[in-house]
Structure formats: structure tokens, C-alpha cells
């Protein structure tokens, strides 16, 4: 194990320096998106739905979308943006002339992806809260959950990014992996009420399902044992994928 936290933070600082140049313009769209979703689907579509999962459709929808925002924030960072830094900006070539090691790069990038997930998810949550859809204080449990979802999708995205030879393949990741997750992970309807019992295990395999279930529980202020499984899933999958990614990052950055 050769992780040095100060060096990982230096990697994180590089990304933060670049982001802070343009943060005003980067952060603005994060507020429009939730408004558009909540108005279109929550109010527009929701107008035809009396209730879902025991609440109005708008209230049902909000926590899941917060998680989706976190997922997207992390995913963009560890796919397109890491690829740009690796291939076009050659940032890691410069880092590896200093005491920074590949493990520090991995940790710094994951931390940065979590940061971006937190910005995305946090903005979404702020809009939801202002719209009165987040019962306080219990909904505040979402705040630690957003970086956790960021960690999960950073780990999955990095594992995928390390395997692909060129940037064009990222669109498969988005259309064939993230989009189905978005549509089928309890965000728009309770999956377990629509899925035949013998297929429920498949639903449990979907990564996004777990943060969404946790977020919804936070909004409702209801704790249950299954939430432990959700946290366990997120942590174990993240740790396993990141452990596996270590050798891949080393292979990509050194030869």
C-alpha cells in the first residue's frame, strides 16, 4: 500500500484549482436541472398520479433524483474528465515526475469525483428543500448519503474507464449502463412492486437502487434493517472495485 494522503490531496487541489476558475458557470446548470425535472415529471406527469408509495408523486420522486444528480456528477468526472486529463492534458505524466504515486492519483481523483457528486447532489437537494419537498430535519440524512453515492459511482466509473481503449466507448457507459439505472432503480416507481418476486435479486444488484432507497428512507424519516444492507452494498462494492482499480491505474500511468 503506498497511499500518501497529502499527495492525494495535491491531486485533488489541481482539479479544484481548475474548477474554481469557472465554478460560477459550472454550478448554475445544477440548479436548472432539478427545477426542470420536478416541474415536468413531478408536477406534469405527477398530476395524473394520485399517490405513489404512500405520498404524492412529487414527494416520491425528489429523493431519487438527488441520488441521480450525485451519480451523474461522479460519472462525468471519472469518465470523460479523467480521460482528458490522462490523454490530452497528460496531467498524470507531470504528477509522476514528483513524489506522487499512482495510488495517490487514484485516491485524489476519487475524492474529486465525490466532490463533484456532492456539488451536483447538494444543489439538487437545495432546490428540493426550497420547494418544501424535503421534510427537515430527517431529510438532512441525505447529506452524508450524497458523497457515499458519489464514491460508489466513482469506483464503478473508474473500473470501466480503465478497461476501455478510447473515449468513444464512454457513450456506451452512459446509454447502456447509467440510463437504465436511472430508469429502473426505484427513482420513478417502486421497482419491487412491478418486478416478479423471482427477479427481485436482480433489482438488488442495481447500484443506484441502494442510495435511492436510503435517500427515500431519509426523506420519510423511517429506518429499517434493509438500509444496513444498502450501506454495506455501497461500501463493499466501492472498496472492491477501487482495490481492483489500483493495479489498472498503475499500468496506465507507468510502463
Amino acid at each position: 500500500m503506498s497511499l500518501s494522503v497529502p499527495h492525494a490531496l495535491a491531486v485533488w487541489r489541481r482539479n479544484a484549482s481548475m474548477y474554481s476558475r469557472t465554478w460560477k458557470w459550472n454550478i448554475l446548470p445544477n440548479f436548472f436541472e432539478p427545477v426542470l425535472y420536478l416541474v415536468s415529471i413531478g408536477i406534469g406527469l405527477g398530476g395524473y398520479i394520485n399517490q405513489m408509495g404512500g405520498t404524492t408523486y412529487l414527494v416520491f420522486l425528489a429523493p431519487g433524483l438527488v441520488c441521480v444528480a450525485a451519480m451523474n456528477g461522479a460519472s462525468f468526472e471519472v469518465t470523460y474528465n479523467i480521460y482528458v486529463r490522462l490523454v490530452f492534458e497528460k496531467a498524470y505524466d507531470a504528477m509522476l515526475t514528483t513524489p506522487i504515486e499512482p495510488d495517490d492519483v487514484l485516491a485524489g481523483e476519487v475524492l474529486w469525483a465525490i466532490t463533484r457528486a456532492s456539488i451536483y447532489g447538494g444543489c439538487f437537494f437545495a432546490v428540493v428543500a426550497v420547494a418544501g419537498l424535503a421534510p427537515l430535519p430527517s431529510a438532512l440524512w441525505v447529506l452524508p448519503l450524497i458523497p457515499l453515492a458519489g464514491l460508489l459511482f466513482a469506483a464503478i466509473g473508474i473500473a470501466f474507464s480503465l478497461r476501455i481503449p478510447n473515449i468513444d466507448l464512454f457513450s456506451f457507459y452512459f446509454t447502456l449502463f447509467l440510463t437504465p439505472l436511472f430508469l429502473f432503480s426505484d427513482v420513478f416507481f417502486p421497482l419491487k412492486e412491478r418486478l416478479p418476486a423471482q427477479w427481485l435479486w436482480l433489482g438488488e444488484a442495481l447500484p443506484l437502487l441502494h442510495p435511492v432507497r436510503l435517500a427515500r428512507a431519509a426523506f420519510r424519516g423511517e429506518a429499517s434493517l434493509i438500509l444496513l444492507w444498502d450501506v454495506f452494498y455501497i461500501l463493499v462494492v466501492s472498496i472492491l472495485l477501487l482495490a481492483w482499480a489500483r493495479s489498472g491505474v498503475r499500468r496506465r500511468l507507468t510502463n
Binding site: A10, R14, S17, M18, T22, A91, A94, T97, P99, I100
Partner: peptide, 28 residues
């Protein structure tokens, strides 16, 4: 040691001063 790579690796959106700051932090 210090290394100047064959091809420049600079952050184009940042100023020279900011580039130096980012790089100095790599050395803690």
C-alpha cells in the same frame, strides 16, 4: 529531482503563477 518533459504539460486555462502553485503542491 526535477523533470522537464519532452512535451510541455501545462494547465492552459490557468496562469503561470497558478500552474506553479499547483505543481508546488505536488511537492507538498
Amino acid at each position: 529531482l526535477g523533470v522537464t518533459l519532452q512535451q510541455n504539460v501545462l494547465i492552459e486555462a490557468l496562469t503561470p503563477e497558478e500552474n506553479l502553485r499547483v505543481f508546488g503542491r505536488y511537492h507538498l
